[in-house]
């Protein structure tokens, strides 16, 4: 939009989620990439942000299939009997 002027770190970081979700226009994306090409700190921020999302998912997703399998029998029975009472 403004030639030779870069968007700021604040602008870039403020729209990071939109950037990753592909919600920016081509022009906005171009400005993001231009800023990233000259700002190692924002490149690191973007990388850390991406890894944070991945880590959150990894940490809270059960590593075995137990969550998709059986729940504790005691809980199942407690729910069933609570309904009947």
């Amino acid at each position: 939009m403004i030639q030779n002027d870069y968007i700021t770190c604040r602008e870039l970081i403020g729209f990071l989620a939109d950037y990753l979700e592909g919600r920016l226009t081509e022009e906005q994306r171009h400005e993001f990439d231009r800023h990233l090409s000259v700002c190692p700190s924002c490149v690191n921020y973007l990388d850390a942000y991406r890894k944070t999302v991945a880590l959150g998912r990894l940490a809270l997703t059960p590593s075995d299939s137990s969550a998709q399998g059986r729940a504790p029998e005691g809980l199942l029975q407690a729910i069933k009997s609570a309904r009947r009472n």
């Binding site: 700021t8 770190c9 604040r10 970081i13 700190s41 690191n44 921020y45």
Partner: peptide
């Protein structure tokens, strides 16, 4: 949340993260 200088740049540069 990140802090910014008056010109909109990051106050503290972000360090690179290790590979997970």
């Amino acid at each position: 949340l990140p802090e910014y200088l008056p010109d909109g740049h990051q106050k503290k540069p972000q360090k690179r993260w290790h590979e997970i």
